[in-house]
Amino acid sequence: MANTPQSKKRARQNERRYDVNKARRSRIRTFIRKVEEAIASGDYEAATNALRTAQPELARGVTKGVVHKNTASRKISRLAARVKALNA
């Protein structure tokens, strides 16, 4: 248990950041899921639009420190490849 005033404040801040980061992570997963659902349905146009909206969301996750840069890059790359394969 936190004893000093600073450690108590840190515990409060950590709880707050945890909630914010959790919501942000959930939001990113939702955007990714929308792209994957569009890919599964075989709709190239919908998949392209979903990917366009998911990319900035993943990039925002990187700047906010929720997702690692390489992880976001990998996810975007793999989704883009799957969307491109739909058109072929």
Rank of each mutant, 00 (worst) to 15 (best):
R82N: 14
Q55V: 10
T63A: 08
E57G: 00
I28Y: 11
R29H: 06
G65L: 07
E15R: 11
K84R: 13
P56K: 03
K64S: 04
R74Y: 06
K69F: 08
E45C: 05
K64A: 08
D19R: 14
T48D: 13
V62C: 06
A88N: 09
A50Y: 02
E45K: 14
A47P: 07
T48E: 14
I28W: 12
I32N: 13
T30C: 03
P56R: 05
K75H: 09
R33F: 02
D19W: 11
G61N: 04
N3C: 06
A59I: 02
E15A: 12
I32F: 06
A85E: 14
R60M: 06
E36I: 01
Y44S: 15
D19M: 10
N14Y: 01
R82C: 04
S26L: 06
E37L: 10
H68K: 14
S41P: 03
Q13Y: 01
K8H: 03
G42T: 07
V66E: 02
A50V: 02
D43E: 13
I32T: 11
I76E: 14
N87D: 14
E57S: 09
N21I: 04
T71S: 13
D19H: 12
V67P: 04
V83A: 12
K22G: 01
R60W: 06
K8R: 12
K9A: 12
L51W: 06
K34W: 01
T48C: 09
R12I: 00
A38P: 08
H68Q: 13
E45Y: 03
Q55E: 12
V66I: 06
I32K: 15
E36C: 01
R10H: 05
P56F: 04
E57F: 00
Q13G: 00
G65K: 10
V20K: 10
R27H: 10
I76W: 09
G65N: 06
R82L: 07
N3G: 12
N14I: 01
K64I: 00
R29N: 10
S7C: 03
H68F: 02
N21F: 07
A72D: 05
S73G: 11
R60D: 03
K22D: 07
Q13P: 00
G61C: 02
S26P: 00
R12D: 00
Q13A: 03
A23M: 07
G61Q: 07
A80G: 09
K64E: 07
H68E: 11
L58A: 04
E45T: 13
A38Q: 08
R16F: 02
H68P: 05
A81Q: 11
